[in-house]
Computed example of a mutant assay.
Amino acid sequence: VELHIEQGPLLEQSGTNLGLVTAIAAPATVRVEFFVGHAGALLMPFRRDAGLAAAELALAVEKAALSTGVNDTVATAGMVQILPGAVNSVPREALLEIDVRDIDEPRRDRVVQEIIGAAQEIGSRRQTEFSVEVLNSDPPATCSGEILDAAEASAKQIGASYTRMVSRAYHDSLFMARVAPTAMIFIPCRGGVSHRPDEYSAPEDLERGVQALALTMARLAGHAQCH
């Protein structure tokens, strides 16, 4: 059982004390590279611009994620490199790394294939060479119903409000779920911010989370009356 800040704003916005995680989304990472043999001071009709191909693909990533109609599908073109990187040079090379996440693996993989298809179409239409590589594709995890029931009983015992929710961030529990029953307990964090100097959770939220974790572990160990 893993205790963690939510890394999102939902608990804080709703005034809910605890989040009981039912599933952990897993990412697939895709690397796409567009490149051209020559990119000099060409007139617009004759240009082959790897940077514009990358820009089109970034928009296609957004479209592919939204096309599922499900909030659990997210996709991000979070890394884009353009070369040679000079203000007066037509980009000859563009590299994108794209993160696609979902709690439904087949749905996530369909989005990945849609993005790959878009890269192929854009590269062909813009007459740029391109390469596509899937760097990783981890399976999502479903959390243990038994652990969630124990966590829910523990939340009630300490008088904490709670909701069942999905985690869209990478966590150790994603991998532990492959070898053992797993679940997570979230506490609110200010503004949904994490991995920054201004990450913050209130002391009372930290204390409540530790209490819920301890009681959950006690229940799972057969000590339901633990105080």
Rank of each mutant, 00 (worst) to 15 (best):
D72Y: 09
V166L: 15
A150N: 13
L57T: 05
I187L: 04
I24H: 06
P27F: 01
I116S: 03
T182Y: 01
C189Q: 11
I82W: 02
L206F: 04
R208V: 01
V32M: 06
L18N: 13
A23G: 09
F34Q: 12
R208H: 02
A212T: 10
A153W: 04
Q13E: 15
P9H: 12
S67Y: 08
A41K: 06
V210N: 09
H195N: 11
A155W: 08
F35C: 06
M176P: 00
L220Q: 13
R47W: 00
A119D: 07
A180Q: 14
D104M: 03
H223T: 02
V193P: 01
A169F: 08
Q113I: 00
Q225R: 14
R190W: 02
A180E: 15
S124L: 06
L220Y: 09
A55R: 00
T73R: 10
V70S: 12
Q127Y: 00
V210S: 10
A28E: 05
M44V: 11
Q7S: 10
L10I: 15
G222W: 09
D138C: 00
L10Y: 07
G159I: 06
H38Q: 11
E33I: 05
G145T: 12
A94D: 07
R125Y: 03
L59C: 03
V21G: 09
V1C: 12
P45F: 03
S167Y: 07
A39T: 05
V112R: 08
